[in-house]
Simulated assay, not measured.
Amino acid sequence: MWNKPHLLNAIADLLMLVASAALLAAAAVWLVRVPSLPVRQVVFADVLPHTQRLEIEQVLPGALKGNFFSLNLEAVRGTLEKLPWVRKVDVRRVWPARLEVRIEEHRPVARWGEGRGELVNSYGEVFTAVLGDSELAVLPLLAGPAGSSQEVLRRYSELVGSFRTVGEKPVQVTLSPRLAWQLKLENGMLVDMGREQAKAPLGVRLQRFIEVYPETVAKRAIRPAVVDLRYPNGFAMRVAGEGKGK
């Protein structure tokens, strides 16, 4: 072996590689365990309209375990995302001793269901949080089976656009367990739209009603309390205290 320089060089290179790896491993262990590199500052990059500082101070210290390198960022993120108004959290290290936290709060666009404190955010996700009465009062009410919040919010947005052309505003949209749609306008009128129909799609029936609304409905001395759009070729209206009429 001593007469084979190339073999000796290969062994030497291998030993150097092993030694370098050992040094790197030892350095990594030291960086993780050394107590002299604590996180000294946590900076929140966003203004938080709903999440209170006290709420953060109550939960965050328990997740700040370890030093700058060993701190579990996922634990910090998961802890903050449990707060009622927090939708998404991004955490990153900033050398030498700082954490930067970006929080995306839920933006409420509607109430969900009845009396459970549930709201719908701009992504159509349901979350539970406390909102002031004045803020709740201006939000529409949406309801539907579990898992349907995105679909109901999408339908509500479409209906807002449709009724804007006739100067009306939906304030409540409901999807029943049988997938039938009903809406309530700001003027108190209920509109039964029913289910999707292959021969008479919901959109077609609704558009037909919108087109005749100014003359057939808006100009009536007494507006109907309920409008039924479930008919394939027309609709029915009922004034409070009267029977149905086409």
Rank of each mutant, 00 (worst) to 15 (best):
L202V: 13
G243Y: 09
G113H: 06
E125S: 05
V29I: 08
G62V: 10
P177L: 11
R98D: 07
L7R: 15
L80W: 02
G167P: 04
V166F: 11
R154N: 11
P5I: 15
Y231M: 05
W95K: 00
G78T: 11
A198N: 07
V204P: 00
G78Q: 13
S149E: 11
A129G: 07
G115M: 03
R98K: 14
W2H: 15
L71R: 00
V39R: 03
V226I: 15
I210L: 03
A180K: 14
L185Y: 12
A10E: 13
V212P: 00
H6P: 00
F44A: 08
R98A: 06
G194V: 10
L23F: 11
E55K: 08
E196T: 10
V191A: 07
T79W: 03
A198W: 04
G234C: 01
S20W: 13
L190M: 08
D46T: 13
Q172F: 09
G147F: 01
V43L: 06
A45T: 14
S176R: 02
R102H: 13
L206R: 10
L190V: 09
N72M: 01
K184H: 04
G113E: 05
P145W: 10
K246P: 06
T216F: 03
Q197H: 07
A146D: 09
R116K: 08
V34G: 04
V94A: 11
L179H: 14
V120C: 00
W95S: 11
P5D: 15
G194C: 07
S149L: 01
V86Y: 01
W95G: 10
Y213K: 08
R205G: 11
E158N: 13
V109I: 12
P140K: 04
G234M: 03
V173E: 14
V34C: 09
V166P: 03
E105A: 14
R40G: 12
R238C: 01
V212Q: 04
E55M: 06
R116Y: 03
A110S: 11
G147W: 04
V212D: 06
L60D: 12
D90W: 04
V226T: 12
R33E: 10
L139C: 05
E215T: 12
V171N: 09
V34S: 11
E81I: 04
I210V: 12
L153R: 11
Q172T: 10
M189G: 05
K219Y: 01
G144I: 06
V227Y: 05
V32F: 02
L73C: 06
G113V: 02
V94P: 01
V109R: 06
G234K: 09
G245Q: 13
